[in-house]
Amino acid sequence: MTQDLRIPSISRGPKIKVFVNGQGLVAYHGETVLAALIAAGRRVLRKSRIDGENRGPLCGMGVCYECLVSVNGSPNRRACMTDVEDHMEIGIDDSEDM
């Protein structure tokens, strides 16, 4: 989980820190929550409602509502449409028990 999928040649905004389920994660000002999560290889974000299947982002553009996470305690926020902020607390459900 220490991988960084950011393209090295691109200069970025100020480095900030967010928390994913309490665990610290590096992010850059100007990124969306989704970009920061994907960059760290986190793609399992939630469970589907009826069957409890693992789900992650699909459309990346605010249409599909598959990338819902909690942001600072507020549930069901689209990771792809939310900017990261320093010390933001992001909650995902990537538990493996089903």
Partner: peptide, 10 residues
């Protein structure tokens, strides 16, 4: 629906 399957747009 598996995480890791994303759209080309995404």
């Amino acid at each position: 629906t598996l995480p890791g399957v994303i759209s080309t747009g995404a």
